[in-house]
């Protein structure tokens, strides 16, 4: 009798558990870490959805898409969150994603009208330096100076690819020439962002490819105002991070609800001081104190996903040839 009761209790417990729908979101590693947006987002969404939100972390943006491709239509993922516009074309090509129904008053410096992916945050790439240094005003000044920069390899890192697109968007056919001029300024090229930022903090490099928002971290989290981002008059290339719904999801309504939730204040207000990027929709409470000190580029550069995908191979070859000299 006792056993029966226990079994019955267990059964009903698991039945209740099974009724709570699970939404699986694939995202990059730093999103789910304790100090990333993941934990707060999970709590905020679960308070509204009566569901279980589960994040699965898979490396960085590029690894994320590779994982989805590996798993194909059988994937457990309902939502993919964390690729940027440079990878959007490749993601769409898989045919694994379904259109979204998100509408919002985006505060992006550009128009957003992609029907498959919705943005959740964005930032400008920039070279970060110590505030006491006279920074160059553009790529040509940088190339003429004897400053040493640490950049990331576009073949293994998303910011590295971003820089490639930045130079391409700003200089077009002259990109190869600019890279040739820059080659003696490149101290080194690293596998990922962490390595180059580490080199910069150690004083090895004068400047590092990062984001205009990087100084905000040092200012807000460390009360250290010694870092600044250099404003380039060619304009700054943007990174827009997006999320999309998998076509094969078994929770289509929940996935839609999550994507809609993503552009509300509850989600967006978490972003600035956890992901250290600009929210895609500035929340009613505004940006945190300290963000007003950041540079705001005159001109925002961004290649459309299709143009970025088309330009990639040529830009990569130009970059490699110029720096391999």
């Amino acid at each position: 009798m006792k056993y029966l009761m226990t079994t019955a209790a267990m059964l009903s417990a698991s039945a209740a558990w099974a009724e709570t729908p699970v939404l699986t979101v694939y995202t990059y590693d730093s999103f789910v870490s304790d100090w990333g947006p993941g934990p707060a987002v999970e709590a905020a969404f679960e308070a509204t959805c009566d569901c279980d939100l589960q994040f699965v972390a898979a490396g960085d943006g590029a690894a994320l898409l590779a994982r989805i491709k590996l798993e194909g239509a059988r994937s457990d993922a309902d939502v993919l969150l964390g690729i940027d516009t440079n990878l959007v074309a490749a993601a769409k090509e898989t045919g694994l994603f379904a259109p979204h129904s998100v509408t919002a008053d985006y505060t992006l410096p550009i128009e957003w009208n992609d029907d498959t992916f919705a943005p959740y945050d964005w930032g400008y790439f920039a070279f970060v330096h110590n505030a006491d240094m006279d920074a160059p005003a553009n790529f040509r000044d940088l190339a003429a100076s004897d400053l040493k920069i640490a950049i990331q390899d576009p073949r293994s890192s998303t910011p590295g690819l971003g820089l490639l697109m930045w130079v391409k968007a700003a200089y077009g056919d002259d990109a190869a020439g600019l890279w040739a001029d820059l080659s003696d300024n490149v101290l080194t090229v690293t596998k990922g962002w962490s390595e180059s930022y580490g080199l910069f903090l150690e004083g090895e490099a004068d400047m590092v490819l990062s984001y205009t928002t990087s100084p905000a971290y040092h200012l807000i989290a460390e009360e250290d105002a010694s870092k600044a981002a250099a404003a380039f008059d060619e304009g700054h290339y943007m990174q827009v991070e997006v999320a999309g719904k998998l076509a094969a999801t078994d929770q289509p309504e929940l996935a839609d609800a999550f994507l809609s939730f993503m552009v509300t204040d509850a989600f967006q207000s978490i972003i600035p001081t956890t992901n250290w990027m600009y929210p895609a929709v500035t929340p009613a409470s505004g940006l945190p104190d300290g963000f007003e000190t950041l540079i705001t580029p005159e001109k925002a550069l961004l290649l459309s996903p299709e143009d970025a995908a088309a330009a990639r191979d040529e830009a990569l070859a130009e970059w490699r040839d110029a720096l391999a000299q």
Binding site: D153, T188, T190, K191, L323
Partner: peptide, 23 residues
Amino acid sequence: ALTLGGGPRATTIELAIYQAFRF
């Protein structure tokens, strides 16, 4: 190799494998 090699001339096969898998 990449970090201390100073640029794409210091590329090893492993990076090409990484690129092929990831990007």
